[in-house]
Design a binder for these strands. Sequence first.
DNA 1: CATGTTTTGTACTAGATCGCATAAAAAGCT
DNA 2: AGCTTTTTATGCGATCTAGTACAAAACATG
Lengths: 209, 209
Amino acid sequence: MRSSTKHDDTEKKPRGRPRAYDPETALRQAAEAFWKTGYSGTSLDDISAATGMNRPSLRAAFGDKHEIYVKALNDYWELKFAALDRAFGSGGTLAETLTRVYDAALSIYFSGSDQVLGCFVVGTAITEAAGDTEIQSIVAEGFRRIDADFEARFKLARAVGDLKQGADPKALALLASATMHTLAIRARAGTSRSELKKLAHKVVSVICG
Amino acid sequence: MRSSTKHDDTEKKPRGRPRAYDPETALRQAAEAFWKTGYSGTSLDDISAATGMNRPSLRAAFGDKHEIYVKALNDYWELKFAALDRAFGSGGTLAETLTRVYDAALSIYFSGSDQVLGCFVVGTAITEAAGDTEIQSIVAEGFRRIDADFEARFKLARAVGDLKQGADPKALALLASATMHTLAIRARAGTSRSELKKLAHKVVSVICG
DNA sequence: CATGTTTTGTACTAGATCGCATAAAAAGCT
DNA sequence: AGCTTTTTATGCGATCTAGTACAAAACATG
C-alpha cells in the first residue's frame, strides 16, 4: 500500500533502528502458520516462531492476532487472484483455460513446504466466517469475484462458439467455482494431487464436452 | 454402540447415582458448540456450558477434548448419511432426487438455532484434517461414501434412460459432490438459503438437462 | 438404615496465551 | 560524542485452559 513493493530510492532512510525482518516475508510466514493450524489453533508464539519476530514486534508491525490474520487473508486472496488472472488471461480454448485455472489453484493448494494445506480460505477462514462478520465478508467478496471471472469466461466462450448457444454462463460459473471448492476441500482431506488433477480433467470434459 | 438408542427394558437399573444428563443430547450439544467455533476455538468450558455438564463429567462420559470432537464428528456423519439415504431412497426422477438431496443438505446447513453454521465437516473438520490423520481419514471416508452414493444414482439414471448413454457417472458424481461442498462453504460464508436453493436448482438443470 | 457404587460438584495445579511495560540495541542527526 | 528516534528483546501479570484429586450427592442393594 504505502511503501516499497519495488524499492523506491527516493525514500529517505528511516530514523531509528532498522527492522530486522522484511514485513512482507514475515506476513507470508505468519500466513503459513495460520494456514497449517487455523486461526484459533495458532498462537502468537507460533507466529513468533514462524517469523522469527518476537511478540511486541509482531504487534507493532501488524497489530493483534485478528489483524494479523485479516492481513494474511487479504494477502492470500491477492496471491490467488494474481494466479487466476494469469490463468484466465493466457488465451487458448475454454477447456485449456479451465485446465490452467485448476492447475494454478492446485499449485497453491499443494504449495505447503512439508504438508498439504489446501486453500487458506476454505481451510481456515470458513471456520471463522460463521462468527466473524469481517472475515465472512472478505471471504464472500473473494468468492463473488471468482464467480464473476468464470462467468465472464463462459460468456466469452459462448460468444466465440466454444460453448453451445443454449449454455447458461452463470450456472456453469457456479459449477466451475464448486469444482475449485471441492479441490480445496479434498486436498486438505488427503486426496493426492494427481487424483485431483484427474478430477479437474473430468469436470472440464463434462462442462466443455 | 453399547446401550439404549431405543430404551431397553431388559436393562437393570444402574447401581450408583443416576446421570443428570442424557449422553446423546449432551453429545449433540457439544457438537453444536464445536460447530459454531471449530475445534481449537472451542474450550472444554464452552462445551461444559453448552451441555450443562461439568468438566469431570464430560471427561468420564466422552473422554478428552479430542475424543469428544471425534465422537461429535462421527455423530454428524451419521446424521447426514441418514438424511441423504432418505433423500436418495424416496424414488422419483434423477432431477427430483438430486433436488431432494440438496434440500436435505441445506436443512442441515441451516439448522443452527441462532446462526448459520454450514456443514460441520467442511466448516470445522477440514481445518483440523491437515494436521490430524484420524480426523482426516474420517472426513475422507465420508466423502468417499457420498461420492459412491451419487455415482450409483447416476448409473441407475443412465440405465433407466433418465440420463443419456454417453454420460460419465463418476464424473457427474464428482460434480454433484462438488456442488454439495460449495453449498456447505457458501452457507458458512453468508449466502442465503434461497440463494443456495437457486444455485442447486441451476446445477441440477445443467446435470440433467 | 447402613453399605457400596456411580455420578456430580468444587477446587487446585500446571501450563498456555495474550497484552503491556520497560530496558537495551541500532540507527540518523546535529 | 551526545541526543533523538525506532525497533528489538526480556519479562511480568492477568486470564484462559486442561487435567485431576477429593468430597458430597444420589441411588440400589442387603
